[in-house]
Nucleic acid binder design. Structure first.
Lengths: 211, 211
DNA sequence: TAGATTGTTAATCGATTAACAATC
DNA sequence: TAGATTGTTAATCGATTAACAATC
């Protein structure tokens, strides 16, 4: 987030910024920002602030954004399509080297210039490209099996879009993105707003303190 | 998450479960689960556990999943397409009532059976359908303007897929999903793994304690 | 009654933030 | 030197979890 905010600052011609400036741009508290940056090193100047380009470079180097990361996407439904075409991945060093799907009907179809291949090609593709990161965009029922196969082939990081809890061995990182839970959380708060406004259709709720 | 885990349990024929069972299914600690449920009420039976269907009903009622939520999606690129087609929304009570885009080239195009309309139709659509939730799937530069217009029309919950920090008034909820930051976090950990394994190409990192 | 499991308390843990000495 | 701002400490806050009395 800080990297992104710094890039935006640089693009608007700003060469130097204070922790307060950057914190506002990133939407966080400035003390938190300074503490976070302190884990990377001491890249600011007291009384002056941070050199935008220099800090950008240091953060980019630290988080490995300079490397090229080959990625496979499994499950080429609507979401898989969108992910394959998502420009934000490519521009941040992620290269989609293969799209896999268990359904033969979509095989050889071109998505974002890449042909969809059978899921059983996973091992060969991971070995060929040195893939470390896999993306799961399958239905929930298929996700654990896909994860198991990914782990068996040596993938150690998984981005899971399927609404399922994955069991993986130690040393494998899983991050989960659940689009409909995000909407549900918003809907819950909407309902609470209606309730607080005295709408009689709203149900009695839990303690606000718990939220 | 608990609701989803309970649904999965119910579908596999399980009628009763302990907090430990449900915690495992949801991927959390059982003490946390019991504490979370305690905010809703006291729906378990000591010595026995929870009735799956009863607890499902209570959670569903509490989070408002029984209601129908009209939603507008702004920005019909790849991601907007995928979101419009995403079956997980419809099945959880979210109804996409309109797709909006500023680009006239995509107007009247049918996506998931819904015609894309001009962004300027926002006010009319929100008023007509009583929309409270908006989804932003535009490029980052357009996001703040879209959010401002949404807020002006009375939308009070925004799901933001654009990589931008949105400024909104108090009382408006924003949730942000940033797909490439998720991948970047995985890539960061991958880099750390390579570093810890002694790969000389890996850069020196921050303290593990900070992660 | 004995065993099991909840609901809740209190302890622990970690993240956030205010405050300020260091220093440009 | 005076003003500004970092880097870091210590306080605060909130979330997680262990432990256990309540009770089925």
């Amino acid at each position: 987030m800080y990297l992104r905010a710094l890039t935006a600052l640089a693009e608007s011609g700003i060469r130097t910024c204070s922790s307060e400036d950057l914190a506002v741009a990133a939407g966080v508290n400035s003390a938190k920002l300074r503490k976070d940056l302190s884990y990377l090193g001491s890249y600011g100047t007291r009384g002056v602030g941070y050199d935008v380009d220099y800090l950008r470079y240091q953060i980019a180097r630290e988080i490995g954004v300079t490397q090229d990361w080959p990625v496979v996407i499994v499950g080429i439904g609507n979401l898989g399509h969108a992910l394959a075409n998502y420009s934000g991945f490519r521009s941040r060093g992620f290269r989609v080297v293969a799209l896999l799907d268990a359904d033969p009907h979509v095989h050889d179809e071109l998505v974002a210039g890449v042909a969809v291949r059978p899921f059983d090609d996973l091992e060969a593709i991971v070995a060929e490209h040195g893939v470390a990161i896999g993306v799961i965009a399958t239905p929930a029922v298929a996700a654990q099996n896909v994860a198991d196969r990914m782990v068996a082939t040596g993938i150690t990081s998984i981005l899971n879009f399927a609404p399922a809890v994955l069991a993986v061995p130690d040393g494998v990182d899983v991050r989960k993105v659940d689009l409909s839970i995000e909407l549900q959380i918003l809907a819950y708060h909407e309902q609470r707003k209606a309730h607080d406004a005295g709408d009689p259709a709203a149900v009695p709720g839990v303690e606000e303190a718990a939220l």
